[in-house]
Amino acid sequence: MSEQQSYYVPASSPWPIIGALGLGLIAWGASTTVIQASAEQDGHGSTVLFAGIGVIVFMLFGWFRDQINESTKGLHNEQLNTSYKQAMSWFIFSEVMFFAAFFGALFYARVIAVQWLGGDSNNAMTNEVLWPEFVAHWPLVNTPGGTETQAMGWYGLPAINTIILLISSVTCHFAHTGLEQGKRKQLTGMLGVTIILGLIFLYLQGAEYVHAYEELGLTLDSGIYGNTFYMLTGFHGLHVTLGTVMLIIMFLRVLKGHFTPDNHFAFQATSWYWHFVDVVWLCLFVVVYVL
């Protein structure tokens, strides 16, 4: 239990409700956008969606500006820092559970659904009566409904990407120790390398998608193999993007001299996030590509 010291209760702030408005607009805009797109109608869905995103970005700037001002004024203290750290860890835990849903779907599809369609367990008649042509195999390149695709191998781009992310995790760590030990050169250098590695990863991931779509016929709608492949790598890619943006912001803040060796929660949170994204990729590399 922590010693309770001076505790900072922030003044009332407009940013939270602006953030809520932003999320509301995004949710509303996104729903109308998909509806309008699927009915091939025109409408204002995407306008609302982008307005929402704009509001969120505006909110983030405002909120973080306040936060940074308070931090640099020294209003934050040890206890608040602990709160932030705990909150960030629980947030990452919630992200883990989000990915768990998709890993679970992959597991279920591969070990249960596809096998049952092939007549396994108590589903002999499923195969015999409904899908007599279908043979269970994974990766599912021929779906019961007759869609054909090709599987994505693990060598080549995915393997390179794994190495890139692994290295970036290490460089991110060294950037952090550089910050803690007050070695500015190490900090900026390593952080810069991390960012560049993140960008390369994203570029290669994009190239891989192009390859999959154009050469392998592996698309988002080509059956459960493509579904799980794109959802897992896609949400991961989204997280890498977010992580890279966070790293870039950290880089700018480092240049502005916001952090001290013992007061740099934001930096630490970003580096945790980056490591988390890296671990997700490792799991993903193993279960999506290799196995």
Partner: peptide, 23 residues
């Protein structure tokens, strides 16, 4: 997954694509 099955052509919950509504 409901959203992508409805609007983006995935088949998490559709046997024809190797998925399963029970999932």
């Amino acid at each position: 997954m409901l959203l992508t099955d409805t609007y983006f052509g995935t088949s998490f919950f559709d046997a024809a694509g190797g998925g399963d509504p029970v999932m």
